[in-house]
Design a protein around this nucleic acid. Sequence first.
DNA 1: GATGAATGAGAGTTCATTCAT
DNA 2: AATGAATGAACTCTCATTCAT
Lengths: 181, 181, 181, 181
Amino acid sequence: MNKKDNILKAALKLFVEQGEQATSMKWIAKEAKCGIGTMYNYFESKEELINELYVDIKTKLFKYILEEHDTNAPVKQQFVQAWLKSMNYAISNKLEYKFLQAFSHSPILSAEATEKVNKLLYPLFEIYEKGKKEGIIKNQDTINLVIFTNGAIAASICNNPNIDEQMKNNIVLMAWDAIKN
Amino acid sequence: MNKKDNILKAALKLFVEQGEQATSMKWIAKEAKCGIGTMYNYFESKEELINELYVDIKTKLFKYILEEHDTNAPVKQQFVQAWLKSMNYAISNKLEYKFLQAFSHSPILSAEATEKVNKLLYPLFEIYEKGKKEGIIKNQDTINLVIFTNGAIAASICNNPNIDEQMKNNIVLMAWDAIKN
Amino acid sequence: MNKKDNILKAALKLFVEQGEQATSMKWIAKEAKCGIGTMYNYFESKEELINELYVDIKTKLFKYILEEHDTNAPVKQQFVQAWLKSMNYAISNKLEYKFLQAFSHSPILSAEATEKVNKLLYPLFEIYEKGKKEGIIKNQDTINLVIFTNGAIAASICNNPNIDEQMKNNIVLMAWDAIKN
Amino acid sequence: MNKKDNILKAALKLFVEQGEQATSMKWIAKEAKCGIGTMYNYFESKEELINELYVDIKTKLFKYILEEHDTNAPVKQQFVQAWLKSMNYAISNKLEYKFLQAFSHSPILSAEATEKVNKLLYPLFEIYEKGKKEGIIKNQDTINLVIFTNGAIAASICNNPNIDEQMKNNIVLMAWDAIKN
DNA sequence: GATGAATGAGAGTTCATTCAT
DNA sequence: AATGAATGAACTCTCATTCAT
């Protein structure tokens, strides 16, 4: 594993465990087993480090959700599979998911990072759009439907870090019941 | 308005507008039109100030939700009224609601504060319990149902600060559809 | 002596003895027997501290030169007295004078500070102007004449920190011979 | 042009444009189009680089002043020619001259460098010595006379970077009037 | 109780220098 | 000889907290 990844990994761990404010650059360097200065060869500032970490993880999450996603499958199936995958990612990558939660409202996130991250949602939108066209999903603003679903699922995951298969299914189906017509 | 309330109000405003890290005690004192030392007569530390503010606001929110709540009304009606009130509070008290969101995952919150806040949810639990007994709400852990609902609604509110009556109703009904049998 | 003066005095001493770059704020605080933070109650930054010190000292120098200055005396006498006073100040306030020399070309000096300092020269200009009108001083740009005189005298002082009365007179008379017609 | 000269040239440019403190070794390397490590093959440290640059430029200045200098010419003519050449060098090599000014009082200059530079003045001394013997220059310490002249001329040049022929002559003649008997 | 000047630990960051390649 | 990633000491500056008034 290269140095940059070491730094990102160390930062992720410490930010989640202690919060951003309580995690000094010195500590990250120690955890990453490199000098403080080395971090500044890869990131211009602590702020940039956090932003890059955020975009990185969010990108990985959506890459995972959408890989092998079948856009031709029935809408409900697409919906269930995408959100189940989201939950699987959260379970397999707890630090990453907690980080996304903790920083999702952080004022430290730049406009640029936020924009990048928002673009990742677009493919998800299409599932909802298709469902609305077919009349099987409620006819409301897609963005609101997505936010509703994501809010519900993220909260459920965060409060049940060791969720089982049954519960995962229950949650996704509840989310489906919420938006279906 | 007394000094303590002035301080809490000033802190709330600045924390939401600029983030906690960017808000110094000096600045809060200036906004509250009192000396720095005065704040330490009312709060042992910045941390305590944040914790007290959090518990205060969360308590007000639930007090508002549950005042005049009719525990004899039908379950769906109780559900809808409680969550509509929650949204109304969010709309009428934007700073307060944003603050709750921003700090809900904060590592600065003490175990004690978290516990106090969790207790506020209990009355809400009874609506779900009653619904489960009557067979009109899904038979799952009440806490998970509450978390699901709250996650969905909080996310929806945060992304639609100027939500209208229609949308509020839509969201609550989606939340109901999710948990109803 | 108050705290601010202590800080200025400590900074002056250390800047002259070691140079600005080699003098840390920590060291100045130690010399001034105050905390580092205290310095930032009086000066926004190291840069501001230097600028204020520069303007302060230059102002004192010119105040000394021009106090009891007789603008009705013959031009040569005014010239000699003013520059002798300048040299006396340099001798009695060696740290101060060295500081002015060392920082006179420093890029750290703000435009504002430079402007303030330049205004101090105006009364000096009038001696030259009067001499030019009377035809006893060379008819060249006053500013160039002043710069010539000051350059010569400052260099002489800096290289003869323990100059005696005789030498002082010699230098001033040489300066006079340079500009007189 | 070889690497070492490239480095010296780059350093000169950046030191004058931005000040020494604001010019990092990394930046010099970039300007010189070489690696940072390469610089340390030619100079032991930043300090040494500055000292070498200073001695180099001062040496070039005096080499220029004294080349084709006629030690048999009349004293006044020698004086005028030498100092005119000094000013010509300053005008043709503005960066170099500004550098000399900026660092002339710098605590970074080593005793060794200062000594080397002082030796360069010796040939100039002889002009003054000859004049004193002939009774046409004031009978004062030669070193003081040289310092006086140099201080006056350097200050005049620095404040008139685009000086014309007429002004140059005026300044040299003023300098001569100052020291002549 | 009210105040804010004083404090210094600790933050983020820089940069001269080293050394393995 | 040439390179530049790696380093960490040391910098400037912040700010929660204290305490004498």
